[in-house]
């Protein structure tokens, strides 16, 4: 399009978007769980064209001295040059680092997993969950897709049971007996793009993100509590508008929860 901003404004005036969505409508969301068998848990999430894969690898390590009864969760978001021409190859760029930090904050704030659950023997042995999120196709709203992929992958994790032999002090891993993780909360992220300082549109595509004057991401948990509100600068927003965002985020949470429950149920019978 020659005048992309003007083009978008005309659509937005009629309360719709060039791809046919309403302003408050998400793109079609699909999730595929457990497709990577080398990972302890994995999920592939598609949000329209945006495709993100998350693989969780569990390793054993000694817990930190100041928190002897806690394990670790290490999230990492990768935006390789493969997913879009806007990213260069080489060390992670700013956007990838910001996304990694955002996901780490969500994990920390929402208490998605109690880190105490990852501890096997206090001060001796604990699980480290490496959650690597790779974007395969970039079309905006990477935060929502990453958060969803992480949640779905963690729901899919099966950890072998580990016991410490009292006599020898060595750990014994029983690969035959596998247990799922206890997921305490289901944080769901909902992103908005702000157009012309006033108009809010949900789940922006890459093009919409580029044209927007700002973005907001709201993360809510099962009880509708806020885990994180992320507004990295951009145009200012009134409190009332932010309330609207939160209300929309709570409805989105219900949609995502329903979808994930359905997918988990569909793979359970095996």
């Amino acid at each position: 399009t020659v005048e992309p901003l003007e083009y978008y404004r005309r659509f937005l005036k009629e309360n719709c978007r060039p791809d046919g969505r309403e302003l408050g409508e998400f793109r079609a969301t699909t999730v595929n769980i457990g497709s990577i068998t080398t990972a302890d848990g994995s999920a592939l999430v598609k949000l329209g064209n945006t495709t993100v894969i998350c693989g969780v690898k569990a390793e054993l390590a000694a817990p930190a001295v100041d928190s002897a009864n806690k394990g670790y969760i290490v999230p990492n978001v990768e935006l390789p040059s493969l997913c879009s021409t806007r990213f260069r190859s080489g060390p992670p760029g700013e956007e990838a680092q910001a996304a990694s930090q955002f996901i780490a904050d969500v994990v920390e704030n929402s208490q998605i997993i109690a880190k105490e659950d990852l501890c096997i023997a206090s001060g001796k042995l604990a699980w480290v969950l490496y959650c690597d999120i790779i974007c395969l196709d970039y079309d905006g709203n990477i935060l929502d897709a990453s958060a969803f992929a992480l949640l779905a992958a963690l729901k899919n994790v099966q950890l072998p049971s580990v016991t410490i032999n009292e006599e020898t002090g060595l750990s014994e891993v029983n690969l035959k007996q596998k247990n799922p993780l206890v997921i305490r909360q289901h944080p769901v992220a909902t992103s908005f793009a702000i157009f012309d300082d006033t108009l809010l549109i949900v789940d922006p595509t890459a093009e919409e993100e580029d044209l927007a004057t700002g973005t907001v991401t709201v993360v809510t948990d099962d009880e509708g509590r806020l885990c994180s509100v992320h507004k990295p600068g951009g145009s200012p927003l009134t409190g009332a508008k932010l309330q609207d965002c939160i209300t929309r985020a709570i409805t989105r949470h219900k949609e995502v929860k329903k979808l994930i429950d359905k997918v988990i149920k569909s793979i359970k019978p095996k």
Partner: peptide
């Protein structure tokens, strides 16, 4: 060309994906 292996692609976690 660029070739990378996801950290979770192998039995042991890869430290350096590319």
């Amino acid at each position: 060309c660029r070739y990378s292996m996801a950290t979770f692609s192998t039995g042991e976690r890869r430290r350096r994906p590319h």
